[in-house]
Design a binder for these strands. Structure first.
Lengths: 140, 140
DNA sequence: CCCATAACTTCATTTTTTGAAGTCAGGTTT
DNA sequence: AAACCTGACTTCAAAAAATGAAGTTATGGG
């Protein structure tokens, strides 16, 4: 996890990744949405690309010129729970009236959320979940 | 979520919080475990305390002198899914042989994991979960 | 009283971030 | 085709933050 914190651990990276989940995939749009300095955005995109989290991919929207697109790789898409957890936390701690129905099942249209489940697929309360310190190889 | 990234977004913060989940609660132990410079640790602890994520609490282990302890507040404990998600991602992307059985149910002892569930409590595949851009008040 | 140690502080140096102002190449407009 | 736009970067100097090493200070034990 220390490596994860290394790659993702800064003020912008997870927000950039969230943009990509939203489908915002080009430099200008990300920059404008987040109001991030372009030099910083550039560095982050390079770092994320080096880390195998996103890929560059030129594309062309109808009636527009070519653009440099950024898309999440499989590794990058696997970050969805991190983004979701962070969002859920942000919502829970900052607002108490959050509808939070903007994570949906593509098939059924039902709202979704993160949960901790046991091996039977039953949800378990946060309070009874215990995080043990890993004894194996350290990742710090 | 931008605020969350603001508070948690740096190389150390989430690792510190993980230490607290593990039950490591004093300055020296955190410093030694993570090998973080003490000035940096100090700043992070202050920031997390200001953000209401942890609290200082003096304690005394049997046969030892008083120590400054750090414990997660409710807000801090609510970060468990973030830590779990990050750990799960780190495991999945960096190792392929991870047992990942160190999150357990305190009551039953069963191994636990994060999942995305729908309103019926049924687990949903990551690929069919869609994150919509929130239209309401922006948090950026 | 002296010593060891935990919990910080200070400080000089390096690294990173930032904001503003460029490049540069591809299209589009005229 | 010449001039113009705009998206995707670069450059640069100033400001802010992180680092490593070397202090402090307070507390309790011998």
């Amino acid at each position: 996890m220390a490596m994860a914190a290394q790659v993702l651990g800064d003020r912008w990276t997870l927000l950039i990744i969230r943009e990509l989940f939203y489908g915002v995939g080009c430099f200008e749009d990300i920059r404008a949405d987040l109001e991030i300095p372009s030099a910083t955005l550039q560095k982050r995109l390079n770092a994320l690309s080096d880390a195998g989290i996103l890929m560059r991919k030129t594309y062309r929207a109808p009636g527009e010129r070519n653009r440099q697109g950024y898309v999440l790789t499989e590794t990058g898409k696997a970050l969805a729970p991190v983004v979701l957890a962070l969002r859920q936390w942000g919502d829970d701690t900052l607002r108490d009236d959050s509808p939070l129905t903007d994570l949906i099942d593509l098939r059924t249209g039902k709202p979704l959320r993160l949960a901790i489940i046991d091996s039977d697929g039953k949800e378990v309360d946060l309070a009874s979940a215990h995080l043990k310190k890993r004894e194996g190889q350290s990742d710090d």
